[in-house]
Write a protein that binds this DNA or RNA. Structure first.
Length: 808
RNA sequence: GCCGCGGUGGCGGAACUGGCAGACGCACAGGACUCAAAAUCCUGCGAGAGCAAUCUCAUGAGGGUUCAAUUCCCUCCCGCGGCACCA
């Protein structure tokens, strides 16, 4: 048993003193760069959980390996420090969020350091510090100048419990992502970032990224591109026209009614014509009150009200059709109005059935058919046109654009993604740097006046109004343009704005009077490897991509995508196979594992549990296996030192295994297959142990190679053994071992002999034995002859270096 | 409902490009050491049959392709994750 406590402390101090993990201008000149980044944590009051070290260990192994193989590595860590929990804690306990955050960061930093990660702490950043959020505000102003940040009154998601608006991405199942309370719609004036302007590029650039496919798919679906047509419907006896977006213009002849979203502006304008206005207005009011959850989740039950006295003209056949309002049509997508084709759309079908509206089939799967069948569900597939005038008989895909053309429709592309709502009516965030003046209107805070400091004299209690409004020192100000009394914007920015650009800040010297410098970005960006949880698929990862593209178009960046490679760590479940949570009481604290088994053991264990990206359960009992492995290594080197057995008896098998292991571990680190890399190290160590037990000795080269391979995984133990074995330099700065490909290849291979596909025998043969000789040997074998039983082989398959299959 | 990921011993998991299924580790059993225990070391360890050599079955279920399938194709079942009326 080695003394992990002392050894780990010793080497953590040595690394810090020697500043081995800090980037240097010297290396910048001669080495190839690698920027390896972890998604920075929100420093919660619970401290680190075992999920954090999983990703951090992976990047650390990767970075240590990269440094040893001659790269200049930037590996920074920081704090995503603004956010609701600290503020909620302030409301409950009265402790200022700045204080809570400071404490939590201290804990996180201590815990992260205790794991021996090779971060460059000189680059540490904190999004809640004025040095940082000053530039978040700068970012806002840049977007504002470009018209990419704008204020708009719109129906937005409102969380009653958090008393703030939420971005679309933060509404989960109609409920607030944080507090799980239902989200309601509110009409409010809010700040947005124009993500939609980049919808097409955000979609098309996905192909260029080395990211997990599921994440790319999630983004693709979230962006939700669909091609279709805008078709204009005249309203009977009025001068109003109604535009509808459809992806199925081919079904226009089957449009038997129209539906407007309850919030559609035209509804109010038609008040005079609507005979049942009272009923219509009541419906509108009730739709507004419904939560997202109610609106979406009661999906089976469609509801709606006809606009009596209002009819539209179907431009395809000039038929007069009714117009309804219903909340299954969303105001925020397309034009907020649809042409309803119940025969070919599931939702329209359900609605038509409920309100006994006509269903007319116009796309027939079996053509020519004498009559169209009566449908018991909508038919959404393809086929040929029927009941569609001159288009009858055309394949529906062709009819799409022919019909669009006939009715003078416009071919358009729609996206599901919405602009990013970034205002928050909360305290603990970066203030939006805007001033409202009665004379000058909306005035951006001049860059020189940044940062707009978050005031401290604030009552945190959320009332639906921004807490900052209650700070007199903050709210009232004179207009920077005309000097007259004016007021500050009192909302803060979504914390996702802070995290949307932090990777651009790290590479710079910390005390610069700019958000980042061109030189530092040119050298370090884009991030070569980014690691974090998959839960950010359509949040942070999408926002960061958007910000990168926006800054590029503003002339600040010269690359299109921030993160070239992305890997997601899988979730670690509790021992009961359930998600770790306080209420279940299945949370594992890394501190405890470090105390009992050591940081190296924890690191190795988390990597050995299973594939990096897989969800896997924690198993306290299995940790001992890793600790035994490290103890074995310790004992081996101790024994060799005591006995002075440091000369190796030439052992070709061991040498071969060593080279195979070097190759495997190298390859596995590069592909993030850490579990199999560790298993290879175990196999090697077991062999080294056997050799040592026979007093055969181990050469310097062999002893070094094992430690070098171990170093990225268990850096403390590797340093200690490296030193004890006579080295005076750090293993963290040593060179990664190389392998000899000729030694990796086996000269003698085991050849399997199958009879009718079943393995019956095996023999050893030189790897380059030709097919004929293999076949001859296989057939000559007694066992094989027995299985053939005198029959004539019908076919013999020979795979060189692997097997012979005899079919009889 | 749609999309994605997965299902291999008692457990976590290996398996290159289709080529001996179960590497490595945990647990378990037997042995060595010990007065004894712990630790450590050695051996065994998918199921069934057999004294044994060995044989049969086995990668969620069923079918298919192939000389050969955990791996490729089809149908279905189960678990997990995401999206959720996007016209």
């Amino acid at each position: 048993m080695y003394a992990h406590k002392e050894i780990e402390k010793k080497w953590q101090e040595r690394w810090e003193e020697a500043r081995v993990f800090e980037v240097s201008e010297d290396e910048q000149k001669k080495l190839k760069k690698r920027y390896v980044l972890d998604m920075f944590p929100y420093p919660s009051s619970n401290g680190l959980h075992v999920g954090h070290p999983e990703g951090y260990t992976a990047t650390d192994i990767y970075c240590r390996y990269l440094r040893m193989s001659g790269h200049h590595v930037l590996h920074p860590m920081g704090w995503d420090a603004f956010g609701l929990p600290a503020e909620n804690y302030a409301i409950k306990e009265g402790t200022h969020p700045a204080e809570t955050t400071r404490k939590n960061i201290q804990t996180f930093k201590r815990q992260i350091k205790s794991l021996g990660f090779s971060y460059d702490w000189s680059k540490e950043l904190n999004t809640s510090s004025p040095d940082y959020y000053r530039w978040t505000q700068w970012l806002f102003l840049q977007l504002y100048k470009q018209g990419l940040a704008y204020k708009k009154k719109a129906p937005v998601n409102w969380c009653e419990s958090c008393q703030t608006v939420l971005a679309n991405e933060q509404v989960v199942n109609g409920a607030c992502e944080r507090c799980k309370n239902p989200v309601v719609q509110k009409e409010l004036e809010q700040w947005f970032f124009k993500v939609t302007q980049y919808a097409e590029e955000l979609l098309s650039c996905l192909d260029t990224l080395d990211w997990p496919e599921p994440i790319k798919l999630a983004q693709k679906n979230w962006i939700g591109r669909s091609e279709g047509a805008l078709i204009e419907f005249k309203l009977q006896a009025t001068s109003y026209k109604l535009q509808a977006f459809t992806t199925r213009p081919d079904t226009l002849f089957g449009a038997t009614y129209m539906v407007l979203a309850p919030e559609h502006a035209l509804v109010a304008q038609l008040k005079e014509q609507i005979k049942n206005w009272k009923e219509v207005d009541a419906y509108r009011a009730s739709a507004r009150k419904k939560t997202e959850l109610e609106r979406a989740h009661l999906e089976k039950e469609k509801s709606g009200v006809p606009l009596e006295g209002v009819t539209a003209i179907n431009p395809a056949n000039n038929q007069e059709i009714p117009v309804w309002i219903a909340d299954y049509v969303l105001a925020s997508y397309g034009t907020g109005a649809i042409m309803a084709v119940p025969a070919h759309d599931e939702r329209d079908f359900a609605f038509a059935k409920k309100f006994s509206l006509p269903i007319r089939m116009v796309v027939c799967p079996h053509y020519p058919a004498p009559t169209c069948p009566v449908l018991d569900e909508a038919y959404e597939g393809g086929g040929h046109m029927v009941e569609s005038g001159e288009f009858n008989g055309l394949p529906n895909e062709e009819a799409k654009w022919a019909i669009t053309k006939k009715v003078k429709g416009e071919r358009v592309t729609q996206y599901r993604i919405r602009d990013w709502l970034i205002s928050r009516q909360r305290y603990w965030g970066a203030p939006i740097p805007i001033i409202y003046c009665d004379t000058c209107g909306t005035v951006p805070v001049p860059s020189a006046d940044l940062p707009v400091l978050l005031p401290t004299d604030v009552d945190f209690k959320p009332t639906g109004e921004s807490p900052l409004r209650r700070s007199k020192s903050f709210h009232k100000i004179s207009c920077p343009t005309c000097g007259k009394p004016a007021r500050r914007e009192s909302d803060t920015m979504d914390t996702f704005v802070c995290s949307s650009w932090y990777y651009l800040r790290y590479p710079n010297a910390t005390e610069i009077a700019e958000p980042f410098t061109k030189e530092s970005l040119a050298y370090w960006l884009p991030v070569d490897m980014y690691v974090g949880g998959a839960e950010h698929a359509v949040l942070h990862l999408l926002y960061a991509r958007f910000i990168t593209k926006a800054l590029r178009d503003l002339g600040y960046l010269s690359f299109d995508e921030p993160f070239a490679r992305l890997r997601n760590q899988g979730m670690i479940l509790g021992e009961d196979g359930e998600k770790m949570s306080k209420s279940r009481g299945n949370v594992i604290n890394p501190d405890d594992v470090i105390a009992s088994h050591g940081a190296d053991t924890l690191r190795l264990y988390e990597m050995f549990m299973g594939p990096f990206e897989a969800t896997k359960p924690w198993s306290t009992g299995s940790i001992i296996g890793i600790r035994r492995f490290l103890d074995k290594a310790w004992k081996l080197y101790e024994r060799l030192e005591v006995r002075g057995e440091r000369l190796e008896v030439k052992k070709p098998i061991l040498e071969k295994l060593l080279h195979k292991t070097i190759k495997k571990v190298t390859h596995d680190i590069e592909t993030f297959n850490f579990n199999t890399a560790i298993s290879a190290l175990m196999i090697l160590l077991n062999e080294l142990g056997k050799t040592a037990q026979k007093h055969e000795g181990l050469s310097q080269k062999t002893r070094d190679a094992f430690l070098l391979l171990l170093a990225p995984f268990a850096p403390h133990l590797a340093e200690e053994l490296w030193e004890r074995d006579g080295h005076s330099t750090l293993i963290a700065r040593a060179s990664w071992p190389t392998w000899d490909e000729t030694l990796v290849k086996d000269e003698i291979v085991r050849v399997i002999v199958q009879v009718n596909g079943k393995p019956r025998d095996a023999f050893d043969a030189p790897a380059d034995t030709d097919d004929k000789a293999l076949q001859k040997e296989a057939l000559a074998r007694e066992k094989v002859q027995k299985w053939i039983g005198g029959r004539q082989p019908k076919k013999i398959v020979v795979v060189r270096g692997r097997l012979v299959n005899i079919v009889v």
